[in-house]
Design a protein around this nucleic acid. Sequence first.
DNA 1: CTTGCCTATGCAACTCGTTGCATAGCAGGA
DNA 2: TCCTGCTATGCAACGAGTTGCATAGGCAAG
Lengths: 183, 183
Amino acid sequence: MALEHAILVSLLEQPASGYELARRFDRSIGRFWTATHQQIYRVLKRMESDGWVTAEEVGQDGRPDKRSWSATPAGQAALADWLRAPVQPEAVRHELAVKIRGAAFADRAGRAELIAEVERYRADHEAVLASYLAGERRDFPAPDPGDARAALQHVVLRGGIAYERMVLAWLDDVLATLRDLAR
Amino acid sequence: MALEHAILVSLLEQPASGYELARRFDRSIGRFWTATHQQIYRVLKRMESDGWVTAEEVGQDGRPDKRSWSATPAGQAALADWLRAPVQPEAVRHELAVKIRGAAFADRAGRAELIAEVERYRADHEAVLASYLAGERRDFPAPDPGDARAALQHVVLRGGIAYERMVLAWLDDVLATLRDLAR
DNA sequence: CTTGCCTATGCAACTCGTTGCATAGCAGGA
DNA sequence: TCCTGCTATGCAACGAGTTGCATAGGCAAG
């Protein structure tokens, strides 16, 4: 599994507590790798016993103490090994595609409800695209050819933007098809 | 979970044995919903006890007997209920994106190996796109406005085609970015 | 004639991931 | 003052998904 490696990347970019990691997985990283706080805490513990990460107790005032995690050299080496391994074929789970094919076996009312649901779904993706574009303007206003980390983060973000644009165009195609059947 | 519903859609399109379903999940349906034969057999059994599907023993000569499954009216009703429910947010697991951000913490040699791996990955997606386009020519040579099932299958396939084209364009962007860092 | 592959179904063990719950201090609003 | 919500960590139980293996007949190639 690769959750370990996603955590390593995140910690190398910036050390963090389990809680902070969980929020990153809700926001930025979670766009291409989801994880709940439970998984993160459990995996961090395993990674600690493997020597991939170390924790430092950080006292805070006005807030509970936290354990700030960093990747160790052994962790970075494990990441390097994993980078060299072949990319696993993705396990796709595209629920909406199943529903669209399922619409062939629904009645008029069911299809009308599906159209409404696709519209809601489309609005969600429009919001995601807007937040990606805002993030791009904020974090990458001018390309810096010397900054490898920024260049790599930016190309991943461009992938997210391209994905969302593709999804929106396809959803328009889906809506046109569904509406055509309703006539 | 939605594996039940993916199976219902597939059986409504065409009754099948567990084995045949597994092959469909390897090929066409598996492009947007993966499942192994183990999962399929187990879920079919549960669906049978829920009354969503029924089996018919089919003797074959030259081959082992099989159990041909069909969706029941109760199964079709369950599918209709599910179609009406909100689409769950997808759990994205995009390993390559993690690796690309991880490349910021790899050395020259590691990045060179990642470039080779991305090229291999790109070739895979090029092959998938070619097979989609061949399938489109084969199955949808001329649009038939009266055939709802075909129209819906076609729009899902167009989604797959759009996805693969987007991925290929993005991988070119990724390769250009990685090669730029190697200079 | 043996070896490997395809059809066809299934059990058992395991890992991964989710859900529900618990604790605990502090901040801000009704 | 009480209630809600945020930071921060974690246990326990469950369900989903994977991996390895087993069985069993037929077919084709070497």
